[in-house]
Simulated scan of single mutants.
Amino acid sequence: MNIMRHRIATLAAALALATTTAHAQQPHRHDTPAPEPAPKTAPTVDHSAMNHSTMDHSTMDHSVMEHGDMKHGGMDHGGMDHAAMDHAKHETDAAQAPRTPIPPITDADRAAARAPAHGHDHGDRVVGTLLFDRFEAWNDHGGGQAWEAQGWIGTDAHKLWLRSEGEREDGRTAAADIELLYGRPLARWWDVVAGVRHETRPGPARTAAALGVIGVAPYKFEVEATGYLDASGRLSAQVEAEYDVLLTNRLILQPLIEAEWHARDDRDRGIGAGLSTIEAGVRLRYEITRRFAPYVGIVHERSFGDTADLRRDEGEAAEDTRVVAGLRFWF
C-alpha cells in the first residue's frame, strides 16, 4: 500500500512539471503588447581626427540637416572637437601668406625712389644737344630770314648753354645776338643760367651780363626769361614762351610769344623805354623724323610806346605780319 502511494505521488509530480514546461513554451498572444526596442544610439564620431580640408561637401546630404540639434545627415556635432579641426580656410590663408617676410622700407629705399629735384636722370654723364627751333624765311616786304637756336652740354648739375637769335632784312642784319651761359638746377624742370650776351644791331655792338631761368611751366609751357645789364647801365629783359599741341603723332602746332622790355631809351637802336615789342606767331610742323621737321606759319610783330614812335620817325611800320616757312631740326 505504501509503495502504491509513493508511485502515485511521483506520477502526479511528473505531470505537473510537464504541464508547466508546455505552458512556458507557448507563443505570446497578440493582445499582449510587445516590449519597445531599445533606442539606437548614434555612433560617436571622433571629429578630432577628421581632416575637413579633404572632406567632399558636395556629396553630403544636407537635406537631412536638423538645425535644432545640429545634426548634419546623422552627424552629431554635439561632441565635435572644434579646437582640433583642420579647416580648409586656414590652409588657404597659410598658402597665400608670403613665405619670405617683406623687409621694412629704409631711408635708402626712399631716396632711390625719389625723382631728381631738377627733373633729369642722366646723373654725372656728360650729354648735349643743339636745337634750331626756328630757321625760316619770308617774302613779304622785300623778304628776310630769321633763326633761333640753343644748345647745351654738361651733366644734370652743371650745363654750358649756347643761345643765338637774329634776323636779316633786305640783305642786311637787322639784329643778332649770341649768349654763353652757365646753368644749374633751380627746381624740378627749371635751371638758373648766368653768363654774357654779345649783341649786334645797327649802331655799336653791345656786351651785357645775363641772368635768367629756363624751364617748363605748368601745362608744359616752355619758358625762357632773362635779364641783361650792359656796361652803360642799360637794363633790359626778354621773355619767351611756347607750347606744342599734338594734332597727330607727327603733325604739331606750336604757338609762341616773345616780349622785350627796356628800362630806358636807346635811340641809337630805335628802342624806347618800357615795353618795346611783342612778337606772336603760330607754326604748324610735320615731323618727318623727330629730328627733322619742315613747317609753315604766320607771325605778327607790334611795337609799343616810344619804340613805335621812333620807328614811325624812321619811316618804318609800327606793326608787321608775315607768312613764314622753315625747318626745325636738332642733333
Rank of each mutant, 00 (worst) to 15 (best):
E91V: 14
T92R: 15
D93Y: 14
D93T: 10
A94F: 07
Q96F: 14
P98E: 01
P98S: 01
P103I: 05
T106Y: 03
T106E: 03
D107K: 11
D107R: 10
R110I: 11
A111N: 11
A111I: 11
A112K: 12
A112I: 01
A113V: 04
P116R: 04
D121S: 13
V127P: 01
V127Q: 14
F132I: 01
F132P: 03
R134W: 04
E136F: 08
E136M: 10
E136A: 07
A137P: 00
W138N: 04
D140S: 15
H141F: 12
G143I: 04
G143K: 01
G143M: 02
G144F: 06
Q145G: 07
A146T: 07
W147P: 00
A149Q: 06
G151Y: 02
I153T: 09
T155R: 10
A157S: 13
H158M: 09
H158D: 15
H158G: 11
L160I: 10
W161C: 07
S164W: 05
E169P: 00
R172I: 08
A175H: 12
L180A: 14
L181N: 02
L181G: 00
R184F: 14
R184E: 09
P185D: 01
P185S: 02
A187R: 09
R188W: 08
D191Q: 12
